[in-house]
Amino acid sequence: MSMELMVKAMKTKVGNPLRKLVLVKLADNASDQGECWPSYQHIADQCEIDRSTVRRHIKQLESQGLLRIENRDGPKGNSTNLYYLTLGGVGRDSPPVGTESTGVGPQPTGGVGPESTRTSHSFEPVNEPTPLCKPDPMEGFDQFWKLYPKKRSLKDAKKAWAKLKPDADLRQTMIAALGKQRLQHDWTKDDGRYVPLAATWLNGEKWNDELGPATSGSTRPSAYRNLPTHTPDMYPEAPDGRPNF
């Protein structure tokens, strides 16, 4: 590590916080002559950004005249980048060095391929990562409501769903259980008179109930006549394409 380069890197204005971080990391790996050869992946891991972002910012630093890139062949035929930092003249006229370089940066463990020498002419602003949005507590409710046979007390049903906030696995379990329960005798007799309200079903975690006897015959009560028996987007399926109920 070159303390002189680290100080100069910290004082250099590059116009982008991530680019500044990459420059400081290169200075951290550089010798007093400004030489270093860290891999894209090593820089990405240390700076907690992805490889493509590292590559883009290194090309921008080169276009700003803050470093010089030389490509060299590795012992196994792979190619790596050798960087010369040119901050305040340090390393600007340094000759290329061979394998006996005193650079302290870690040697690349694998070739970076042709992308290491690909020139980027993009000068568009970098889109920085945005914080992850909170999950929507009502995600999956429309699918559940479409399947549920008793369309009453929608407001209470939404309130119960928002309180439960089921994840993807639980939603799949609930939909699969509902697909089976709506065919049992207690739910189909008397035109679905004994089907619980959706809010009651959710608050009581009724998807865990044991199943009663299924309805016999092909006639479906009026409460079910407008409901599809199966659609791919409503029921989870087994790998062979059959419904899991």
Score class of each variant (00 low, 15 high):
Arg225Phe: 06
Lys76Cys: 08
Gly98Val: 10
Gly91His: 13
Asn81Tyr: 03
Arg55Phe: 11
His185Asp: 15
Asn208Ser: 07
Gln64Pro: 10
Pro149Arg: 07
Val22His: 09
Pro196Leu: 10
Gly113Cys: 02
Glu205Phe: 12
Ser79Asn: 14
Gly103Cys: 06
Leu23Asp: 08
Thr215Gly: 07
Val54Asn: 06
Pro131Gln: 04
Lys20Cys: 01
Tyr224Trp: 14
Arg171Ser: 07
Gly105Pro: 02
His121Pro: 09
Cys47Trp: 08
Asp233Phe: 03
Pro135Cys: 01
Val14Pro: 12
Arg171Cys: 05
Ser63Gln: 12
Ser222Lys: 13
Pro114Glu: 12
Thr173Gln: 15
Ser120Glu: 04
Gly192Arg: 00
Asn226Pro: 10
Asn208Lys: 11
Gly217Trp: 00
Gly34Pro: 02
Pro75Arg: 06
Arg193Thr: 08
Ile58Gln: 03
Ala162Leu: 10
Lys25Phe: 12
Ser122Met: 06
Asp32Ala: 15
Met3Cys: 15
Ile43Asp: 04
Gly192Ala: 07
Leu21Tyr: 04
Ser79Gly: 09
Ala199Gln: 04
Leu67Asn: 07
Asn78Trp: 14
Thr219Ser: 11
Leu85Gly: 01
Pro96Asn: 08
Arg72Ala: 14
Thr53Pro: 05
Thr200Asp: 14
Cys36Gln: 00
Gly89His: 12
Thr188Gly: 00
Gly91Ser: 05
Lys134Phe: 10
Gly140Arg: 00
Gly88Met: 02
Met1Pro: 01
Asn127Arg: 13
Arg193Leu: 15
Ser122Ile: 09
Gly77Pro: 02
Ile58Phe: 03
Arg171Ala: 03
Arg242Asn: 07
Pro96Thr: 10
Leu82Pro: 12
Pro236Gly: 00
Asn16Trp: 07
Arg51Ala: 14
